[in-house]
């Protein structure tokens, strides 16, 4: 199986407008945004813009080849499918181990939604003075590369600054090759010789 593709932002282009967050949340909403507004569906993007005095850019899943989130999951709810590291919501128990394991901060645990509507879990109830009350279901939440979406990842499509790109294996190979060439040229131009070369 080939190396997975992933979405990456260019901090020199990003203006921090958060359109990607909105596009992501809408793409996974399962209903229209007007309906979402009327029923106050939670806003749950799968990437988040980081904004500090040094850098502004969204951070999202890298779809790691040996994904720590999947390796850490005690119930096998995170799988690799069609080159995408994917959460199988139906299996997730909301334990947050994946959140702790992810080195990029790309995992979250959020309310599970069905067509924008919060859902109750069938299992564990909340103990109250009036007895057992239903509890909202929470699940692991991460970038799924908009799997099955005709236009590809919604965040890439919406970015007006063209700061987001879908990095494919070929893109990486080309970039690595051109950097390798540039390094070689730089060494040649600098006239530096390896120690002992003149011996």
């Amino acid at each position: 199986m080939t190396a997975s593709t992933f979405v990456l932002a260019d901090p020199t282009k990003c203006i921090g407008c958060q359109s990607c967050e909105i596009a992501c949340a809408v793409a996974h909403l399962g209903t229209s945004i007007t309906t979402a507004g009327e029923m106050e569906a939670p806003f749950q993007p799968r990437l988040r813009v980081v904004r500090t005095s040094q850098v502004t850019m969204p951070i999202q899943c890298r779809h790691c080849e040996d994904a720590p989130c999947a390796n850490a999951c005690p119930v096998g709810a995170i799988v690799r499918q069609d080159g995408v590291v994917l959460v199988k919501e139906e299996k997730c128990i909301g334990c947050k181990t994946c959140v702790l394991a992810c080195p990029f901060g790309a995992m979250d645990v959020v309310p599970a939604l069905d067509k924008g509507q919060r859902v109750r879990q069938p299992g564990l109830k909340v103990q109250t003075d009036e007895g057992a009350a239903p509890k909202e279901r929470y699940v692991a939440h991460k970038c799924d590369l908009c799997i099955g979406r005709p236009g590809g990842p919604a965040c890439v499509e919406v970015c007006l600054a063209r700061a987001l790109v879908l990095v494919k294996r070929g893109t990486m190979a080309r970039s690595v090759k051109s950097r390798r060439t540039a390094s070689a040229m730089q060494i040649a131009r600098s006239g530096v010789q390896p120690a002992g070369a003149n011996r």
Partner: peptide
């Protein structure tokens, strides 16, 4: 502030 997505990113 009446738009779900816009208020979502800056509530």
């Amino acid at each position: 502030r009446n738009c779900w997505g816009l208020d979502g990113v800056a509530p």
